[in-house]
Design a protein around this nucleic acid. Sequence first.
DNA 1: CTGGATCCAACGCGATACTG
DNA 2: CAGTATCGCGTTGGATCCAG
Lengths: 116, 116
Amino acid sequence: MAHTNYNCNPGCPVEAALEVIGGKWKGVILYHLLSETMRFNELRRVMPEVTQRMLTKQLRELEADNLIARKVFPEVPPKVEYSMTEYGKTLTPVIHSLQQWGSRHLEEVAQRVADR
Amino acid sequence: MAHTNYNCNPGCPVEAALEVIGGKWKGVILYHLLSETMRFNELRRVMPEVTQRMLTKQLRELEADNLIARKVFPEVPPKVEYSMTEYGKTLTPVIHSLQQWGSRHLEEVAQRVADR
DNA sequence: CTGGATCCAACGCGATACTG
DNA sequence: CAGTATCGCGTTGGATCCAG
């Protein structure tokens, strides 16, 4: 289910992975959903700078790729929960290493600023 | 767990990481450069679908973020080598996990197709 | 609350031509 | 070989309104 152009030397693993999780906000979405199931507006709250339109779009794509599950509760007011699928959970090492590196990177950048 | 920064903004580690390596082709570029130093046209060859313009741009950004080094040889014809910086090499776990997951994902997708 | 539909500006990106 | 410059279009994505 390619959303960006699929045009790889057939079988580059990194390209294949980025094809699926390389969307602008997908990494962050997966990061949050790995820690807990969340509703639509909960996701908006932890990612304030993502517009509703974009959040919806990225969620749909992740769902189409079978990484997350969308569960609608037939209630009023509506309630929709997003959670990782079993397949999506296999991304744990990827997101985890991203988080680890990001943490150290934030320190690194802060250090560079402090040095000035 | 007790110290995880739940509220993502600002300073979400995953966002910070994606900020730097989330560019459309950066993951693939880093993947290749982690295995070996390469010249400009060598990179083009292993990533045929990336235009020259985009490759140049992404390389410049990675260089600005101190992840890769650009070494110009004052020769005719020109020769420019791109390599990982020491800091860039700290991305090894990230790229590695991406590659691992991508490999299994390719098998998964092939399996889905075979099932039909 | 959880979206879908529409309009429109911004710019990412490709194509092409040119240069040291 | 390794870029830079310019043009132009198509997509992205924000803002807004509407709906179940």
